[in-house]
Design a protein around this nucleic acid. Sequence first.
DNA 1: AAATATTATATCGCACACGATATAATTTAT
DNA 2: ATAAATTATATCGTGTGCGATATAATATTT
Lengths: 149, 149
Amino acid sequence: MEPTLKLADQICFPVYAASRLIIRKYTPYLDELGLSYPQYLVMLVLWEEDQVPVSFIVQKLLLNTNTVTPLLQRLEAMGMLTRKKSQQDERKVIVSLTAKGRKLKEQAASIPSEMAACLLSKEITAADLGMLVNKLNQLIATLNEEEAS
Amino acid sequence: MEPTLKLADQICFPVYAASRLIIRKYTPYLDELGLSYPQYLVMLVLWEEDQVPVSFIVQKLLLNTNTVTPLLQRLEAMGMLTRKKSQQDERKVIVSLTAKGRKLKEQAASIPSEMAACLLSKEITAADLGMLVNKLNQLIATLNEEEAS
DNA sequence: AAATATTATATCGCACACGATATAATTTAT
DNA sequence: ATAAATTATATCGTGTGCGATATAATATTT
């Protein structure tokens, strides 16, 4: 497929539109948890690994500090997590889940399979989704690696 | 791949992260045109079909009116397009490119191939990109169709 | 034809997302 | 040991992105 100025032919628009539409699809599920989509992503990171510095979340989500800091401040105000300066290095702020934040994981447990079901269709099989995830992760690796240099 | 609460396994995060990283990659090219990424998308629509109502752009970009209206207002202030009420139906606002807006297409012509080159790597071939575009467009169709009901 | 519903666009408020910049703490170079 | 550089996080300003709502024009119903 030769790249042109046509909207549907370029990779950028399908990825951008799919991202927004998938997030829209998540919203009703996340509303039950009282989380926005980016807040949900932060919680996913912390459910995998707790008591991490802000920079860890920044790296995992490929976001910038100036996006993550306000996210953490809102989640702290919601009682989901705490932020405390590290003893070893006072530049670092350690983010830790509260009991409430840990408990929310149980409520969230059903979301991934519910969402996967939403995305399947005649044209898109589970294998397709798996392949998409793989290729997109490779694409992300390429884009992120160049950025680091 | 069984869906879990792990960040990298779900389809949502790779799509979301890839979208943001691709847009970051575009930014230096778009800066030369003086356009943001969503503004560029509006121009792509108008370069394909001029003199269309706001709703046409909304449908093409899968955005909401309350996102597109301010975009158009900024592009109008930049002298790229005009907005005029339709004669036939005064509820409609017809968006038309100015000479300046049409001329910008020439400057933008090189962007798609430059961007495609940026995204290729050992792991991602042109065929992979084509396949990604196809599958994502199918996914978008599924998500958008459900929404319409 | 008047009331009601629908359609097309716009406004408002809030939460990202990011470039640019600031600040404080640690590391390094002299 | 002290100045300079680096690191980690935060603040500020602008531009989306969207739910909720408003407004004006057209279509439909009674």
